[in-house]
């Protein structure tokens, strides 16, 4: 037990050093603060940033104290852990959807993980206050058992420090891509229809006839290198409306990244009589 009491402070110390350092140096701390429950609790986003940064400094100080076996640091750590627990209880009550803001990239809502982490800090530092020897003396006396305990404790704390959504998976997935290459297609499939639609919707042709188009894209097909896009619309004849088909033909390979001038042809047809209405409805600009 006395060995455990001696070895817990450095473990908690490292955890506090890491989370404290990230809070102090992190540039996007404002965004982290905004996601946390602090602005709601303090009613001021600017104060929330300062509180978060101040907490980081306190964590650093206590972490260094625990590593160098300053007796007061164990008490400080226990108080810090207790304060985290109180904050989490308040945060969960006031803003249950907000994140804990505890570790650097944490954006998940406050859950049992955050409570376990704060509890570990309070308990670890509290037990450490009972230690007789500094950790290096205890370690030197029984190096084998101490190493095993430190390793097990370190793994447990690392797991607690990680966000709940299994963040260890992401580095593994990154590694797999690095080793085996990118698994997704490099796009030999030609120009996606969505790219043609995008080109069309940013074109002068679209601008010209958009007011009579009512539907989204009804259907599309290709013919002789042209991609035909078919929309339904309506035109006003007196007080009545008549349904029309609006057709666009554009180069099947063209996208808005191309540098050449894009030619788009437009046709308008009465859906019932099949009368071609293009000359009546669409005057080519500049003509």
């Amino acid at each position: 037990m006395s060995l455990l009491a001696s070895l817990l402070p450095p473990l908690v110390g490292v955890l506090l050093l890491v989370s404290g350092a990230l809070k102090v140096v992190r540039r996007s701390l404002r965004a982290q603060a905004a996601r946390s429950a602090l602005p709601r609790l303090l009613k001021d986003p600017n104060r929330a940033v300062w509180v978060l940064r101040g907490t980081g400094v306190a964590e650093l100080a206590v972490g260094i104290g625990l590593l160098t076996a300053v007796p007061a640091a164990a008490v400080g750590g226990a108080l810090l852990g207790a304060a985290f627990l109180a904050y989490l209880v308040a945060g969960r009550a006031v803003a249950p959807e907000s994140s804990c803001g505890c570790t650097a990239s944490d954006s998940a809502p406050i859950g049992w993980h955050a409570f376990a982490r704060a509890g570990a800090v309070a308990a670890g530092a509290g037990v450490g206050a009972l230690a007789g020897d500094p950790w290096w003396t205890a370690f030197a006396e029984r190096p084998g058992v101490s190493s095993a305990m430190l390793l097990a404790g370190g793994a447990g704390l690392a797991w607690l420090a990680a966000a709940p959504e299994h963040q260890w998976r992401v580095p593994l997935r990154r590694l797999r891509i690095r080793l085996f290459g990118h698994p997704l297609a490099t796009g030999a499939a030609g120009t996606p229809v969505a790219a043609s639609v995008e080109l069309l919707e940013r074109s002068l042709a679209w601008e010209t006839v958009a007011p009579i188009i009512r539907s989204g894209l009804l259907e599309h097909w290709e013919e002789d290198g042209w991609r035909i896009l078919h929309y339904a619309g309506a035109r006003r004849v007196g007080d009545a409306e008549r349904p029309v088909s609006v057709l666009f033909a554009l180069d099947a390979r063209a996208t808005r990244d191309g540098l050449t001038e894009r030619v788009i042809r437009v046709g308008v047809v009465d859906r019932e009589t099949e009368e071609v209405l293009t000359p009546e409805l669409v005057a080519a600009p500049g003509a």
Binding site: F248, A249, I264, R265, V266, G267, V268, V276, T278, V282
Partner: peptide, 8 residues
Amino acid sequence: AALGGATI
């Protein structure tokens, strides 16, 4: 109808 339409 599309190919014979107005060219913009």
